[in-house]
């Protein structure tokens, strides 16, 4: 009897361990592979490598589109992150702190970019922008702002999730205490609630940045000839050449995002915030 339960307990643990390890390998392997490839000496990708070199990294700088794409992506991602938070934070307050008609519909609307294919979002934004340009004469298509608007849409569901989860975690009586001490709802939100959901907002900013920085589908439809983002530059390069330059660019992209994660994790415990 006792031996039997021990056996099952061990089997359960081993299965669990294997599953965790498997998932981990599945997630890390592509990243590791890309990093490895970026140092290959040979131009035609083949295993095993003929030698190692850093030439693909210097090759990047010879390709103007990667440099300008990187800056555009960075600019758009920062803009989308900042504006996205300005939209989602008040929306999350409204959703968690008040009851109003159409609350559910409002929530679904904000989450819908997760459901609607990005290519559809991009296409419909493009058409709206063109209409807008015709009406007002303002250039939107091809502007950093136009791109950022598209990216804000897809960052919203992520930051909504994180911020509402954090808001739900804030003890309501703490906010009520602030009210009873003479703080208006706005002051209570700024002085009490915001400092308490700060980690969630940092995490939301990070996720927004990552989602925007890596986005391809929406950007594809909103750029004009001559304008490019990093993912588009990668795609276009791949269309006529496959060499480790792509791996090197990806390695830099991974490094940017990885650095973001590490820095953020120093300020807030990401694992804890995301678990909420």
């Amino acid at each position: 009897m006792v031996r039997g339960t021990r056996f099952w307990e061990r089997l359960r643990r081993i299965t669990f361990g294997v599953a965790v390890a498997g998932t981990f390998v599945f997630m890390v392997l592509p990243i590791a592979l890309v990093l490895w490839l970026s140092f290959f000496g040979n131009e035609i990708l083949s295993l095993p490598p003929e030698g190692y070199s850093l030439r693909w990294y210097s090759e990047i700088f010879a390709q103007r589109q990667f440099i300008s794409g990187f800056w555009t992506s960075l600019e758009v991602a920062l803009l989308a992150t900042a504006c996205g938070l300005l939209v989602t934070t008040p929306a999350s307050f409204a959703l968690t702190r008040s009851q109003f008609r159409g609350r559910e519909a409002f929530l679904q609307l904000l989450m819908s970019p997760l459901i609607v294919p990005a290519i559809v979002i991009g296409a419909s934004l493009y058409m709206s922008f063109v209409e807008f340009e015709v009406l007002t004469g303002l250039p939107v298509v091809g502007s950093v702002w136009g791109l950022a608007i598209g990216h804000i849409l897809i960052t919203i569901p992520w930051s909504m999730r994180l911020i509402t989860a954090n808001l739900i975690g804030v003890d309501r009586s703490v906010e009520e205490a602030a009210l009873s001490l003479g703080a208006s709802p706005l002051v209570a939100a700024l002085k009490v609630t915001l400092p308490l959901i700060w980690p969630g907002m940092v995490a939301a900013a990070l996720f927004s940045f990552v989602v925007s920085f890596g986005n391809l589908e929406i950007s594809l439809l909103l750029v004009t000839p001559g304008q490019t983002t990093l993912p588009i530059a990668i795609l276009q390069y791949l269309q006529w050449k496959i060499d480790p330059t792509i791996a090197a660019v990806s390695a830099i992209q991974i490094a940017v995002i990885g650095t973001g994660l590490l820095i953020t994790d120093r300020f807030v415990n990401l694992a804890k915030v995301v678990q909420r």
């Binding site: 003890d171 703490v174 205490a177 009210l179 009873s180 003479g182 208006s184 308490l196």
Partner: peptide
């Protein structure tokens, strides 16, 4: 009147101190 115009002092069961 909203709570912030009533001048009441409230002590909550869980104290509700501002943790930050």
């Amino acid at each position: 009147e909203p709570p912030y115009r009533r001048n009441t002092g409230v002590v909550f069961q869980n104290y509700a101190l501002f943790p930050h």
